[in-house]
Write a protein that binds this DNA or RNA. Structure first.
Lengths: 197, 197
DNA sequence: TCAATATATTAACAATGTTAATTTAATAAA
DNA sequence: TTTATTAAATTAACATTGTTAATATATTGA
């Protein structure tokens, strides 16, 4: 990587860092080109030398947040025994991350994406995220005959959809009203999906 | 209702009608105050004589769309035998409506809501919608001992969350890429949640 | 018919994303 | 080292958004 590339990456990094800070703090609705640039210490127009548009910049944060979320999930679940219990723990940690930083949930699932197909990889990254986090544990469930391959295929998606639906309603529609209710329901749902008689 | 109220309701109706048309056609991102007003045949500022702001107007459409969706669901499922089968049919028709009019899904679940608590009733309306559509069938399942009260309590929510999650991913994240895949997965999910051995 | 009121429209503002024009900094050639 | 050329950053400007203020136009009641 030549000097030019290093410098360019560094500049992009400043803007990405600023964007991430705003997303984690004030959330998506408080973000603006001028806002980001000010925090990065540059003029708003400079941003356009490094990103096609502001959405491009915003979606570049996805990778970083996924890494952060993954690290969080791992650290929260490393002591749990493999298998169904670990699967449950991963699901809960995953939700916990988004509850702590609702801006990242908005970015991952709510923010409208450009029609351009250049974002295709980012889209894939988002939809496969939960799969990547849980892959090992599902495979273990199959290996230990706790679940069949077919069951896993279904339950994996049920869990994923259920979590995203719950988070959408809670973060975007304040339903249920209290976090206690939310947590209780989440527990119920996870247990219902991941409990085998 | 005096003349004043009739006229006021009529005026509101024009704007609501225009908003609904745009939502169903171009969707939420193509909506604007000037856009709505032009279609309603008034100046954009006139709108503010009848609605506090544009979000207020937009959320007034929720009731209408719910009625429309409910009518659609009923007409699509009236011939189905009561019980689990009907429950499945209702779920599918519900999804079908939102797939046909993605703008209404955006309105119901994605569009950011004002922080004002005046929208509280609308929020409740949205979160309880699926419950209202399926209430009778769930009760019948309990009455016919197909499901226990406890099972219903859980499955009702699983179904609701799963559907919203799936729709969010499909409408907002193009996942899965084809409608065929989406339909197949929906079928799988509904059957998995609503099938009792 | 004319004053008072209600209603609608145009003008204007602030905030947004984006691009054009301009200035400033870095680099290479003499 | 000085100067011409290129790259990078900034300011100015534009179009679009929601909203409010100022103005014009109907409507109503005496």
């Amino acid at each position: 990587m030549g000097n030019k590339e290093i410098q360019e990456q560094r500049m992009k990094g400043y803007f990405i860092q600023a964007t991430k800070e705003i997303l984690k703090g004030e959330g998506l609705r408080n973000i603006s080109v001028r806002n980001i640039a000010e925090r990065a210490g540059y003029s708003y127009a400079t941003l356009y030398n490094y990103f096609k548009d502001v959405r491009d910049l915003i979606f570049e944060c996805v990778i970083d947040f996924q890494e952060e979320c993954q690290a969080f999930v791992i650290s929260e679940t490393e002591k749990i025994n493999p298998g169904l219990d670990k699967l449950k723990a991963i699901a809960k940690a995953y939700v916990k991350y988004f509850i702590q930083y609702p801006g990242t949930f908005e970015l991952f699932f709510i923010e409208r994406i450009n029609e351009v197909s250049s974002k295709q990889t980012t889209l894939k990254l988002i939809s496969n995220f939960m799969d990547r986090l849980t892959k090992n544990e599902w495979e273990r469930c199959i290996a230990t005959k706790v679940l069949s391959k077919k069951e896993v295929e279904i339950k994996k998606n049920t869990l994923n959809f259920m979590i995203i639906g719950m988070l959408l309603l809670y973060i975007n529609r304040r339903q249920p009203e209290s976090f206690t209710d939310f947590s209780g329901e989440l527990e119920n749902q996870i247990n219902s999906i991941l409990t085998v008689e």
